[in-house]
């Protein structure tokens, strides 16, 4: 296809090559592309952010304890329900209360946010490593703010810990008080936090 704009050195005599048809096609193509750009561009920042995140993660793993995410002094994490000393059935809801701090899914880096972890019948041994993930350390990496637990009859302790995008507790750690509850087989379910 011939060039749609006259070459600068073409001179006045060459206007015959200024072709209305190709000009219209090029203009339309440009207009279509400009209109499509916003839609295409929304896909790109997300991809760019994801590309950047693994690099930061690698940095974090390399420097280890030096890079803990800051907590906030006035952040208050608490178990909204059950209460300390409560007697519950084998299947019950636990409600996570958090004030002056936000929740974000695991992997999302944003100041002032973290995701919940529930410690069942255990304590946190170290604070500068990722919290393990097992039956006694439940992770809520999708940003959940409540859960339904099933525990065998007997006494159990529950404690909430908030952790950053890499499951490492904040500095200072944002933790709830440890509560003790009694599970009884004859109590039915408590699925409402109210």
């Amino acid at each position: 296809m011939t060039s749609s704009f006259p070459a600068p050195s073409a001179g006045r005599g060459r206007h015959a090559t200024f072709d209305a048809r190709s000009c219209a096609l090029s203009c339309a193509a440009l207009w279509g592309l400009l209109s499509a750009l916003p839609v295409l561009c929304t896909g790109m920042p997300a991809a760019a952010a994801e590309a950047a995140a693994p690099d930061r993660k690698a940095d974090q793993a390399g420097t280890g304890a030096a890079q803990r995410t800051p907590g906030r002094k006035d952040a208050w994490l608490y178990i909204g329900w059950p209460n300390n000393g409560q007697v519950v059935g084998t299947r019950f809801k636990v409600w996570f209360g958090l004030r002056n701090f936000g929740v974000a899914p695991a992997g999302v880096r944003k100041d002032g946010t973290g995701h919940h972890h529930l410690l069942i019948d255990t304590e946190l041994k170290t604070f500068d490593e990722p919290i393990p993930s097992d039956r006694q350390h439940l992770h809520f990496g999708k940003g959940q703010t409540e859960t339904i637990l099933e525990l065998p009859p007997g006494r159990h302790t529950l404690q909430l810990v908030l952790a950053d995008a890499d499951h490492v507790p904040h500095d200072p750690p944002i933790m709830s008080k440890k509560i003790t509850i009694t599970v009884r087989a004859d109590r039915g379910q408590q699925l409402s936090a109210q």
Binding site: P105, T113, Q144
Partner: peptide, 21 residues
């Protein structure tokens, strides 16, 4: 204090696109 509950979905900050949040 208003306490807000959410069942079967998660919380994510504004600007974060994450399924079911």
């Amino acid at each position: 204090w208003v306490r807000m509950g959410l069942q079967n979905m998660g919380i994510a900050p504004a600007g974060v696109s994450h399924a079911d949040t």
